[in-house]
Design a binder for these strands. Sequence first.
DNA 1: GAGCATTTGTCCGTATGTATT
DNA 2: CAATACATACGGACAAATGCT
Lengths: 240, 240
Amino acid sequence: MAKKSRYAEIADVLAAEIADQPAGARVSSEHEIAARFAVSRAAARAAVQELEGRLLVRRVRGAGTFVNRRIDYVLSQRKAPSMHQTVREAGGTPRTVVCDVRRVALRGELAARLEQPEGSEAHLLVRQSYIDGLLSGWAQEWIPLDLLPELDAAVHAVESLDSILRQMCGVSPVRAWCRVSYSLPTPEVAVGLESDHTRPVWLIESLSRDGDTGRPVMCSSTWSRPDSTRIIVELDGPWK
Amino acid sequence: MAKKSRYAEIADVLAAEIADQPAGARVSSEHEIAARFAVSRAAARAAVQELEGRLLVRRVRGAGTFVNRRIDYVLSQRKAPSMHQTVREAGGTPRTVVCDVRRVALRGELAARLEQPEGSEAHLLVRQSYIDGLLSGWAQEWIPLDLLPELDAAVHAVESLDSILRQMCGVSPVRAWCRVSYSLPTPEVAVGLESDHTRPVWLIESLSRDGDTGRPVMCSSTWSRPDSTRIIVELDGPWK
DNA sequence: GAGCATTTGTCCGTATGTATT
DNA sequence: CAATACATACGGACAAATGCT
């Protein structure tokens, strides 16, 4: 058996203790860990950084280190393209905060995907999403203007965009196309995620259509923190 | 504008220099960086670790730090379930090394997915995959026995399993189901990937069927190093 | 708002261990 | 075996963000 470094041993002990604690619980400070295991603060720090790398904790400068939990976020054609529902299915509590609602002109790929003329206007909704109170995602969502002229009032009354589209527009959104990748966020995205712009994050690009008519109803780009969600993409063929 | 830490500044300078260099090129050692920027080795080390976090370099103890490149590995129902072809489409050079070929009894989910009776035998092929000479993945692949009794000889003659199935079995494999996630590898997998078992890696589970008959022809679990591939999953609905 | 203690972030210098060449 | 390079570790210091008084 390979000999382990001291900080890795400490990390394993802490990881086992963390496993029994609820999300959000406070983890010992670096000073306390150093004193408890009789090591320097550098070694204690390395152990906590190890836990951060395993996505077991989140650290906040000046505040402390806290137990983290990821939820399984499953993307599939069989499932509704709804963040609120997907999170609830995984046992989490979703919440969204509107950052901005405005009208923008659709260009290029975005216009094509929504099947709107180049330069036509659409709603742009920018939101942060939280899971169990922790910041998880930052999303831009485009919706054709004629589908719902008064989006602003609606999104403040009902958090789930899927519900709004179903109840106010009479459509049944289904995920028609989706692309998931994992790369560095732009500085703007990093701000929205309160994340370092040098750490990779999930990018989920998605197009929803009305399940009955096939009409495009929503296009979105969602960036998601890897420490909040374990993204799972299920791709289904014509069989099964 | 936020003030940057010294190591982040150094990392940015090095990142810009690395961008012009070919994959595999040697990066200055920590000592050289410390001397060049007049900082301690700890700060130089932090800068190089930053680059490692951005997946721009790979570090080998005792050997040095080297420029890394990722390729886009695109998973989609429209594309053949072939590692060799997917890598070549992204501009890389694929290679596979057989670690083990043996017969195993199919159990549970695996048997169900291949539509074989519980406990029936199948080939198990264990391979490492390399991209441009760098270790990229470690895979277990299960193939029904009756499809190709002499798998052992075939995989040593032809590297691409997709080609073998097409040419020797007369099937046209298509990706019928696939699940992609990102989590910590088991110790066994970490060994196969020559990776730390405390760093998350990709897990791609896949089922291939014959495009003509719909018969299951291959089931696989592939673990892939995030520093070798940028996994992209495309999900297509009935419209498009 | 100001002040203070706590906590993580960064950095210095030094030393030793371990893997590769 | 020797030189090189990364890995771990010690102890100390100050900066920056947070939370409370």
